[in-house]
């Protein structure tokens, strides 16, 4: 159940090249490798609209990929940047049309019902983790997610955010400290149920 995707970064870098010249399977592999991370990152930016924003992001990626150069690392960063821009667009658009606020209930829609109970448990902790991270100040949440979930280094994350790597490190560091404080002291052993310190999340958001 650990992350390792079917392809290594090297293989995925090859996929980037192949996709650029139109290879559909390669593009699919990229989508599968990046979409879940992207979606999680976007969730913190736009909540329940993450899927919409992600699909806009992919449309743009599909369209502009031919002009992209770089390896898989670069691709992830590129995707994150596009996603972030789309998210910002989205937020601005929402604000200018207050008619369509996103009701909190919609948050629950995000989690499509999953097939197995085991998956639901998984989903819960990932969601809970994301929710907790999302409760950080925005810059910290983004720094943490770009580093941990999108898998970018500080420098790449900085490019996504338009910040210096040092600023990203600081933000991520602060974010982690804050998270650690919320999680409480380690019982030294890794808790069986990783998550969810009482009170860290508001129940309504815990999905």
């Amino acid at each position: 159940m650990r992350p390792p995707p079917p392809e290594t970064d090297t293989e995925l870098s090859a996929c980037v090249d192949a996709a650029r010249s139109g290879d559909e399977d390669a593009f699919r592999a990229l989508f599968r490798a990046v979409q879940p991370r992207l979606l999680r990152y976007l969730r913190v930016l736009v909540g329940a609209d993450a899927e919409d924003v992600a699909s806009e992001t992919w449309l743009q990626i599909a369209r502009d990929l031919r002009g992209f150069k770089g390896d898989f690392d670069g691709f992830r960063g590129w995707a994150a940047t596009i996603g972030r821009h789309r998210a910002l667009d989205h937020v601005r658009h929402q604000r200018r049309r207050p008619a369509a606020p996103v009701p909190d209930e919609d948050l629950t829609d995000l989690e499509a019902p999953s097939d197995t109970a085991a998956m639901a448990v998984d989903a819960l902790s990932t969601d809970a983790a994301l929710t907790l991270i999302a409760s950080l100040p925005q810059d910290q949440a983004e720094a943490v997610l770009l580093r941990v979930v999108m898998g970018l280094d500080a420098r790449s994350a900085g490019k996504v955010l338009g910040k210096r790597p040092g600023a990203v490190r600081t933000a991520a560091h602060r974010g982690l400290r804050r998270l650690a404080a919320r999680l409480g002291p380690d019982a030294d052993a890794r808790p069986t149920d990783p998550m969810i310190p009482a009170g860290a999340l508001t129940p309504r958001d815990a999905t």
Binding site: R2, S114, V148, L183, D186, M195
Partner: peptide
């Protein structure tokens, strides 16, 4: 630790 677990959960494999 807990923090590690939290981040692992955040970055867990795709659903």
């Amino acid at each position: 630790g807990r923090l590690g677990a939290l981040l692992d959960a955040a970055a867990a494999s795709a659903r």
